[in-house]
């Protein structure tokens, strides 16, 4: 519209104001992400300097001692373990659901199933935590004991000295249910975009429905599904209250999935009442900083994978 300056000039003030507000709001969003990192770092800085334990290899986390002794090794292990187990369970189920919704059913059945998944996504995480520790955890205890008895010789499945159902195992299964809807929704969107011709071509060649899926749908949606899984991973890494309610504290760090422990998010939330001085809060903010960097990296990577997938297709 650059060749109609007189029409534009009638509205300059309004456009400058409104467009300016839109730009400021957007600039603010960019700024927020940057200052989140800056504020977390500046608050964690002094405790990190005073830390008398190795920040990356120590499994201790003591904010009250002088100087503080804290390291993220145990937190990192528990966080990654819960998220990895959750992802290992949620991704196949989510892909199955996405395939069902795009390739197997249509119309009313599909929208009914999609509705169920939407409702699952709407359940607040604190309720997942409550249900996980009071109902679901006790219910799966027998199978946990079975795995422990069969595979107990592997340290990962060893006896974690936790009597309650508040184990990494329970937390992982609940996390898997929690991240299922988001992975399903994103994967479904990608699978739904599989070119019609590819599918019909395969069908015309006499392929079964599974072969259509394997030859046409899955290769097409692979990068999208990976990106969806990584976004789910980002969710699982940062999930706070459900994990906090489920995991029980342990005296000594143990690698087993049948042990308790703390994730980055849960240790911060559990100790929030202890934030009486900025210094003590800073110790926990250092854990938050690591979590921020971790989720930032996972989400940025997910976006790169998704973009690359888009460019290829």
């Amino acid at each position: 519209m650059s060749n109609q300056p007189e029409i534009q000039s009638t509205s300059r003030v309004g456009d400058v104001l409104f467009g300016g507000a839109a730009k400021i709001a957007s600039g603010g969003i960019v700024l927020i992400v940057l200052i989140i990192g800056i504020f977390l770092l500046s608050n964690a800085w002094q405790p990190l300097l005073d830390n008398s334990a190795n920040f990356f290899t120590s499994t201790e986390f003591r904010a009250s001692t002088k100087p503080p002794r804290f390291g993220v090794a145990a937190l990192l292990w528990t966080t990654l373990l819960t998220s990895a187990v959750a992802l290992a369970i949620a991704v196949p189920v989510a892909i199955g659901l996405a395939l069902l919704l795009t390739q197997y059913v249509t119309g009313r059945v599909a929208s009914a199933i999609a509705f169920v998944i939407d409702l699952l996504a709407a359940v607040p995480s604190v309720i997942f935590g409550l249900w996980g520790i009071k109902i679901f955890g006790p219910a799966i205890q027998p199978s946990a004991h079975l795995i422990e008895n069969l595979l107990g010789w592997i340290p990962l499945f060893g006896d974690g000295q936790v009597a309650s159902p508040g184990t990494v195992f329970t937390a992982s299964l609940v996390l898997a249910i929690m991240i299922l809807p988001i992975i399903t929704a994103l994967t479904r969107d990608v699978f739904a975009q599989t070119p019609r011709e590819t599918i019909e071509g395969a069908l015309a060649l006499g392929a079964t429905r599974w072969e259509v899926t394997r030859l046409a749908v899955l290769p097409y949606g692979r990068s999208g599904a990976i990106a969806a899984a990584m976004l789910g991973l980002g969710r699982a890494l940062g999930e706070t209250i459900a994990v906090m309610l489920i995991l029980s504290k342990v005296a000594r760090f143990d690698v087993s999935v049948f042990s308790g422990g703390e994730t980055f998010a849960s240790i911060i939330a559990r100790n929030a009442p202890e934030f009486d001085t900025p210094y003590k809060a800073g110790v926990y903010i250092s854990a938050g900083l690591v979590l921020f960097v971790l989720t930032f990296a996972v989400n940025a990577l997910a976006r790169v994978v998704a973009e690359r997938g888009k460019a290829k297709s």
Binding site: G27, F39, L40, G238, T240, P278, T295, F296, R303
Partner: peptide, 30 residues
């Protein structure tokens, strides 16, 4: 727009506990 869009994606992925810690670090500590 691409920068803003990227940052929105990152903000979407920020865990609620990190957002809370940020507000704590800014409003309460600072």
């Amino acid at each position: 727009a691409r920068v803003v869009s990227f940052m929105v994606d990152i903000l979407t992925g920020v865990p609620s506990i990190v957002a809370a810690l940020f507000v704590y670090a800014m409003f309460i500590t600072t």
